[in-house]
Amino acid sequence: MAVIGLGGLGHMAVQIAHAMGSEVTVLSQTLSKKEDVLELGADHYYATSDPATFENLAGHFDLIINTVSAKIDINAYFGLLTLDGTLVNVGAPGEPLSVNVHYLIGQRRSFAGSLIGGIRETQKMLDFCAQHNIVPKIEVISADQIDEAYERVLASDVKYRFVIDISTM
């Protein structure tokens, strides 16, 4: 399986997939987070800015989870799926993604979305994470750093979640 993006959602997806026994590949714009990727449990790491990535990994994945909340060319990733493979979108871009169905129907590929489970599913996930010592990587900030944190999010300068110390409010 592959995870697109190594941000707040992506770094958790890598840890959970690894704990579930999956061979995990991270697909990120650059290779700048390689050390983090391997520490989180990924087996492979490729830069999507390199066109060879899409050639070398064509038809490789049963499952791809897109955690990116920016607009990307989602169609480019459909070619990485196997026959009957599925790409699940969990990131929420601010503008619509354009999907070319021809990338789906020729290989019986699926495109799905997910937001969150109910209370029972959430509790199962929390229990699983506790059992496998899966925790988010966070940076605690004070309330007066919110504007700076927002700018850092836009610049992709977060590893991997900001948490606001409520006592500074």
Score class of each variant (00 low, 15 high):
Arg152Ile: 05
Val158Met: 06
Gln29Ser: 13
Ala47Cys: 03
Leu40Cys: 09
Phe162Met: 09
Tyr45Pro: 06
Leu57Asn: 12
His18Phe: 06
Val24His: 03
Gly91Arg: 09
Gly79Cys: 10
Asp73Thr: 06
Thr30Ser: 15
Val101Tyr: 13
Asn133Ile: 00
Leu40Met: 14
Asn56Trp: 00
Asn89Cys: 09
Val135Cys: 01
Ala92Lys: 15
Leu31Gln: 10
Val68His: 04
Ala19Pro: 01
Pro96Tyr: 12
His102Gln: 13
Asp84Gln: 12
Pro96His: 11
Asp127Tyr: 03
Phe78Asn: 01
Tyr46Met: 04
Cys129Asn: 04
His11Arg: 07
Ala112Tyr: 03
Tyr46Asn: 03
Val26Gln: 05
His132Met: 04
Val14Glu: 05
Ile72Leu: 07
Glu23Tyr: 03
Gln123Leu: 14
Val24Phe: 05
Leu63Ser: 02
Gly113His: 13
Cys129Tyr: 07
Leu83Gly: 00
Val26Ile: 15
Leu81Arg: 07
Ala13Asp: 06
Ile166Thr: 14
Gly118Glu: 04
Ala92Asp: 01
Asp62Pro: 01
Ser49Gln: 12
Arg120Gln: 14
Arg152Phe: 06
Asp147Gln: 14
Ser22Cys: 13
Met12Thr: 04
Leu57Ile: 04
Gly94Gln: 12
Met1Cys: 10
Ile65Gly: 00
Asp165Val: 10
Ile65Met: 10
Thr86Met: 10
Gly41Cys: 09
Ile146Gln: 08
Pro96Glu: 13
Lys33Leu: 10
Ala76Asn: 12
Ala155Ile: 01
Leu27Arg: 02
Gln123Trp: 11
Val3His: 08
Ala42Leu: 04
Ala155Tyr: 01
Asn100Ala: 13
Tyr150Thr: 11
Ala143Pro: 00
Leu27Asp: 01
Gly118Arg: 05
Gly85Met: 08
Val37Thr: 15
His44Glu: 13
Thr53Pro: 02
Ala13Asn: 11
